[in-house]
């Protein structure tokens, strides 16, 4: 019970944080355009803030992407293999992913320590550079956690691969939403609803 609750809360937080980053980036750039074009003024910290949010978005999101299967990959070949071989290669792939993360955690840690020691500030936002940069370490540690979870699932037989995002599958959701719509019917069902559109 508590377990499920925690999972739900974590999911909510992750999703909320990612969405918030994407929306804030978009709005900040939008507001910059409005400020420049409409009010002849600029926001001097906007560029740095937008780029930082982008870095957080990607590095924080990478692990969430593993959890929900948002990454893409080539699985046509492993899927042709017998189940046991498939599982073996998936586990091998996960181990390699963990090595990748390990190398980056190590490299990022050294990089971050150096930056903290030197103590340089961001260009426009008056905070030390190493603080926003810490997402490098955080992101790769989270990625390790997700890969370990996935590896465990493969070992106990709950999963057999990475479950890559499938743009085709996602597009089918659009199709589902539209399924019951008729075409060629001159008095379309929703033409009533459209009455007054753009008026």
């Amino acid at each position: 019970m508590v377990d499920v609750m925690i999972k739900k809360v974590v999911s909510h937080l992750e999703e909320g944080f990612l969405s918030l980053l994407l929306v804030s980036m978009t709005l900040l750039v939008f507001v910059e355009v409005v400020a420049r074009f409409g009010f002849n003024s600029g926001i001097h910290w906007a560029q740095e803030a937008t780029l930082l949010m982008a870095a957080w978005f990607v590095l924080f999101g990478a692990s969430y992407g593993v959890k929900v299967g948002a990454h893409i990959g080539v699985d046509v070949f492993v899927k042709m293999l017998p189940a046991n071989t498939h599982r073996f290669f998936t586990l091998l792939a996960i181990v390699l992913c963990l090595i990748y993360c390990g190398l980056f955690v190590y490299g990022s840690w050294i990089y971050l320590s150096k930056m903290k020691m030197i103590g340089i500030e961001m260009e426009d936002i008056p905070i030390p550079k190493w603080i926003p940069m810490s997402i490098l370490v955080i992101g790769f540690v989270l990625l390790i956690v997700r890969f370990l979870q996935l590896g465990w699932k493969v070992v106990i037989g709950q999963a057999d691969g990475f479950h890559f995002a499938d743009e085709a599958e996602e597009s089918m959701e659009i199709a589902k939403d539209l399924q019951d719509t008729a075409l060629g019917d001159p008095e379309n069902k929703d033409s009533n609803k459209d009455k007054g559109d753009k008026s």
Partner: peptide, 21 residues
């Protein structure tokens, strides 16, 4: 370019300094 001095320089002539990549 990112520089507080350059920002002040354009503000001094009532122009609008903008930082863009």
């Amino acid at each position: 370019m990112t520089s507080d001095v350059l920002q002040a320089q354009f503000e001094a002539i009532d122009a609008v300094p903008l930082k863009k990549p």
